Amino acid sequence: MRTLIIDDERLARNELKRLLEPYMKIEIIGEAANADEALPLIESLQPELLFLDIQMPGKNGFELLTAIEGKAPEVIFTTAYDEYAIKAFEFNALDYLLKPIDQDRLKDAINRIEENQVAPELPAEVNERAGKVLNENDQVFVKDGEKCWFVKLEKIRLFESMGNYVRLHFDDQKPLVLKSLNNLEERLDSNTYFRANRKHIINLHWIDKIEPWFSGGLLVTLHGGDKIEISRRQAIRFKELMSL
């Protein structure tokens, strides 16, 4: 995996590079000391994995992830503080390693990456259905706890990332499904469903109002009252998509 190391301590970066040497699948393509250095590297190099410190000068690790526009890489947090663990997994982190990094814990984290990359073999007809792009006329089965729905996609106005889950907004229901927003984005018809920012995909047919917003972004109001910010970068794509 193409990997960036982001940590304000040079010695910590060097130590992590040393620990990662035995893992041939980890290709370190760059390093950064802070968010300002990291963001242009992420945009230009398109890494698949970040080893990311949390407490850094300027933007912290969480703020850096929030600032990434478009599809974010996988993340393993590396930090000297254990109080951020819950918040880390709200950001869909693969793992959370405490400094000084233990070689066995690092091995577990690498194994977790490999497990996530291995897909179970399914019958051909199941694979074909799983790879099908879903449009507004498709119906999907949704289960949250004891409740179940068979809902037409055109009724879902908003998909909201909640850590390892996605919250679906339709009618007055807001069930959670165990999916990542990135995986859902790959399955949804891009002519109808638009990635507004790191946390939200909106149904374009549900847009009620559009307003200019901070830093060149847009604020859209959906029928039903949800207000969603379209990031500056995505606002450019949005205008291109919606213009004559």
Rank of each mutant, 00 (worst) to 15 (best):
L64M: 07
L64Y: 02
L64I: 06
L64N: 05
L65H: 06
L65V: 10
T66Y: 00
A67V: 05
A67Y: 02
E69A: 05
E69W: 02
E69G: 07
K71G: 00
K71Q: 14
A72E: 12
A72C: 10
A72F: 00
P73R: 05
P73V: 03
P73H: 06
E74H: 10
V75C: 04
V75W: 02
I76V: 12
I76N: 07
I76C: 02
I76K: 04
F77M: 08
F77N: 03
F77R: 07
F77K: 08
T78C: 15
T78M: 07
T78I: 15
T79W: 02
T79D: 03
T79R: 08
T79E: 05
A80Y: 04
A80R: 04
A80D: 09
D82Q: 13
D82P: 12
D82H: 12
E83P: 00
E83T: 13
E83A: 08
E83K: 14
E83Y: 15
E83R: 14
Y84S: 03
A85P: 06
A85L: 09
A88H: 08
A88R: 09
A88M: 10
F89K: 05
F89H: 03
F89N: 06
E90R: 11
F91N: 07
F91Q: 06
F91H: 12
F91M: 10
F91G: 08
F91W: 11
N92D: 15
N92V: 02
N92Q: 13
N92H: 14
A93H: 06
A93K: 04
L94D: 01
L94P: 00
D95L: 03
D95C: 06
Y96F: 15
Y96L: 04
L97W: 09
L97S: 10
L98Y: 09
L98R: 09
K99S: 11
P100C: 08
P100V: 03
I101A: 03
I101C: 02
I101T: 10
D102G: 12
Q103L: 11
Q103E: 15
D104I: 13
D104V: 13
D104G: 01
D104Y: 12
R105Y: 04
R105S: 09
L106R: 07
K107L: 13
K107F: 04
D108Q: 14
D108H: 12
D108M: 12
A109Y: 01
I110Q: 09
N111Q: 14
R112P: 01
I113E: 03
I113C: 10
I113T: 04
E114H: 11
E114L: 15
N116Y: 01
N116P: 00
Q117P: 00
Q117Y: 08
